[in-house]
Write a protein that binds this DNA or RNA. Structure first.
Length: 504
RNA sequence: GACUAAGUAGCUCAGUCGGUAGAGCACAUCCCUUUUAAGGAUGGGGUCCUGGGUUCGAAUCCCAGCUUAGUCACCA
C-alpha cells in the first residue's frame, strides 16, 4: 500500500473539506430513513405507476452523466441499481444553487454514498428512474472505484485482477455484485443442513478450537501458546473426538459447523482454515448414515438450485437419491482387474509397480490399497457415489468391519471425482481404540508428521461406554463449490488466505 | 516444492527492431434540461513489480527476487 496519494485521492480529500466548508458533513451521524430498495421499485413500478411517489432510498453512486442543469446518476444499494434523474431547480428550488452546482456536480464522485428522496417515473428512453427532490450526502469515498460498465449484459472494463479481488473483497462486492449470490447460497446451504438436523432433534453444539491434543484427523496442526498456563495449544484440525465425548455423555445426536485449521499446502481446493460439519448419531451404523447423507445432500441441492441436477463445469451432476454404493474392493476390481480381497501385501506392491503407481517400502497393505484407489478409481466417480469398506490402517477411529477384520465400516462420498464426505461406524471399543492410537504413535516415531496423537482422555471416555454411533463429516467449502459451480475455494470464501501484502 | 504465464495510469489493456510512455473509461476545467458501456472540447496523471547486468541508450534483452494465476507433486 502506497502512502503517496494519487491525484484522484487528493481531489476527493479536497472535496470532503470543501463540503465541510459549506456546512455539509461528509460523514453525517444521523440515521437515514430508507423506505424502499432498488429492485422492489424495478419489479413493481412500470406495472403500477401510482406506486412510489414518495421514496427515500440510499446507495452508492456508480455512474453519473451530467448535462448542464440536469443529470443522471446510477446508485447501487444492497440488492441492485437504479437510475436517478437530478434537476437543478428541483433539488435547489431557492436562489441558492450550491447543492446542485457545487455539491452534486463537483464535490460528489463515483463511489460516494448518498440518500435521495423523490418520486419514481419512466424516462423517454423507457428507464424507470427516481426524480430526485432532495439529496443527502451520507459518506464520501476517498478512493476511486474501478469503473465497470455494462450494456445488454456485456461487461466493459470488468474488475478482474484476482489478487485485488481476493485481497479487497469489499471492492469486488461493490463492482461485481453478482458474486454475492455465491455467498448467500453458502449461508443457505448451512441453514438447510442446520434445519434438517434440528428437525431430527439433534443438538447443535460448540467444542474447543484451542486444543491440548489436536485429534480427529491426520493433519499437521497450527501451534500456538497460552501465556498464563505456559503450555502449547493447537488449533483444531477436527472436532470429532469432542463430539463423541458428548455422545458418551448421553446426547442422541450432536453436530457442529467447525472451523478447522490445517498447516498444509494451499491450492484451488485447500485453504488453511476451512469449514467442516460433523454430525454424530447414537445407535446408528454407517449404512444408516449413507441414507441420511443422501437425504441431506438432495435436500441441499433442491434448496439451492430448485432441482437435484446441478451444472458443474461441463458436467451435470444429479443429486437425486439413492446414490450408487460401491465397496473399495469392487471399485478396484472394476477399474484395475485386481481382486484386493485375495491379495497379499507383496502381491499388492507388485501390482502397484505394474500400474506405475509410486510406492515405497514403508507402505503397508492399507496404504497400498488407498494409493491404487486414488490413482485408478477416484476420478471415475463423477455422479454421487458412496465408496465403502476401507482398509483398517487408514482409519484409526473407525469400527472394525462386522465381517472382515482387515476392513473398517467407513464410507466416503465422491462427487466429480473428489471426496465430499467421510463417515463411519464409530469405533467405541476402548481397548481397540488405544491400540489404534498406539499404532499411530509408531508412525509418528517413524517421522509421519500427520499421524494422530494419543488422546488418553478420549480413551477414558470410551471406557465409560459409548453407544454404537455413526458419524459423518462434510466439507462445507467443497459442498458450496459443487452447488455454486465455483472452480476455486477462493470463490466461496469471502477472505481466502493470501500471502501478506508488501507494505513499503 | 517443480514448471509455465502474467505484473505498464485508479480500472481494463496496447506498446513494433532496444531509441522522448500510449488508448479507453475514471479524474480536472469549460459547454450542454430526459441521457444509456463512452454528449463535446481541452487538460493533468507513470517507481513500466523490485534489484542487479548488457548497452551510448532498457517497459523491451539477460540474471536473481517478489506477487498472482494455472498445471503437477504433496496433503484430507
Amino acid at each position: 500500500m502506497s502512502l503517496e496519494l494519487s491525484e484522484q485521492e487528493l481531489f476527493r480529500r479536497q472535496s470532503a473539506e470543501q463540503m465541510r466548508a459549506l456546512g455539509i458533513n461528509p460523514y453525517p451521524a444521523p440515521l437515514y430513513e430508507v423506505n424502499v430498495q432498488t429492485t422492489e421499485i424495478l419489479e413493481n413500478y412500470p406495472k403500477d405507476n401510482t406506486l412510489y411517489q414518495e421514496v427515500s432510498i440510499a446507495g452508492r453512486i456508480m455512474s453519473r452523466r451530467i448535462m448542464g442543469a440536469a443529470a443522471f446518476a446510477v446508485i447501487q444499494d444492497s440488492v441492485g441499481k437504479i437510475q436517478l434523474y437530478i434537476k437543478r431547480d428541483e433539488i435547489c428550488p431557492e436562489e441558492d444553487k450550491t447543492m446542485y452546482n457545487t455539491v452534486f456536480k463537483k464535490l460528489l464522485d463515483i463511489g460516494d454514498i448518498i440518500g435521495v428522496k423523490g418520486y419514481v417515473f419512466v424516462t423517454q428512453m423507457g428507464e424507470t428512474s427516481i426524480h430526485v427532490k432532495e439529496l443527502t450526502v451520507l459518506s464520501k469515498s476517498l478512493r476511486p472505484l474501478p469503473v465497470v460498465k455494462e450494456k445488454d449484459g456485456v461487461i466493459y472494463d470488468a474488475f478482474t485482477n484476482p489478487e485485488a479481488r481476493y485481497r479487497q473483497r469489499y471492492l469486488d462486492l461493490i463492482v461485481n455484485p453478482e458474486i454475492k449470490d455465491v455467498f448467500t447460497k453458502r449461508t443457505k446451504i448451512i441453514n438447510t443442513i442446520r434445519n434438517f438436523f434440528d428437525e431430527k432433534g439433534y443438538l447443535e453444539v460448540e467444542t474447543p478450537v484451542l486444543q491440548n491434543i489436536p485429534g480427529g484427523a491426520a493433519a499437521r496442526p497450527f501451534i500456538t501458546h497460552h501465556n498464563a498456563l505456559d503450555i502449547p495449544l493447537y488449533l483444531r484440525i477436527a472436532n470429532e473426538l469432542f463430539l463423541k465425548r458428548l455422545i458418551v455423555g448421553g446426547f442422541d445426536g450432536v453436530y457442529e459447523f467447525s472451523r478447522n485449521f490445517r498447516n498444509e499446502g494451499m491450492d484451488r481446493t485447500h485453504n488453511p482454515e476451512f469449514t467442516a460439519m460433523e454430525v454424530y448419531v447414537a445407535y446408528k451404523d454407517y449404512f444408516w448414515m449413507m441414507d441420511f447423507t443422501e437425504e441431506m445432500i438432495e435436500r441441499v441441492a433442491i434448496a439451492i438450485n430448485g432441482d437435484t441436477k446441478v451444472t458443474l463445469g461441463d458436467k451435470e451432476i444429479d443429486f437425486k437419491r439413492p446414490y450408487k454404493r460401491v465397496t473399495m474392493g469392487e471399485a478396484i476390481l472394476e477399474h484395475t482387474g485386481y481382486d484386493i480381497n485375495i491379495m497379499s501385501e507383496e502381491e499388492l506392491f507388485a501390482a502397484c509397480k505394474k500400474m506405475n503407481i509410486e510406492v515405497d517400502s514403508t507402505m503397508g497393505k492399507g496404504k497400498l490399497i488407498d494409493e491404487i484407489f486414488g490413482e485408478k478409481c477416484e476420478h471415475h466417480y463423477v455422479q454421487p457415489t458412496f465408496i465403502y469398506d476401507y482398509p483398517k490402517e487408514m482409519s484409526p477411529l473407525t469400527k472394525e468391519h462386522r465381517s472382515n477384520p482387515e476392513l473398517t465400516e467407513r464410507f466416503e462420498l465422491f462427487i466429480n471425482g473428489k471426496e465430499l464426505a467421510n463417515a463411519y461406524s464409530e469405533l467405541n471399543d476402548p481397548i481397540d481404540q488405544l491400540d489404534r492410537f498406539q499404532q499411530q504413535l509408531k508412525l509418528q516415531e517413524r517421522g509421519d508428521t500427520e499421524a494422530m496423537f494419543i488422546d488418553y482422555d478420549f480413551v477414558r471416555a470410551l471406557e465409560y461406554g459409548m453407544p454404537p454411533t455413526s458419524g459423518m463429516g462434510i466439507g462445507i467449502d467443497r459442498l458450496t463449490m459443487f452447488m455454486t459451480n465455483s472452480p476455486s475455494i477462493q470463490d466461496v470464501l469471502f477472505f481466502p488466505q493470501m500471502k501478506p501484502e508488501k507494505n513499503d
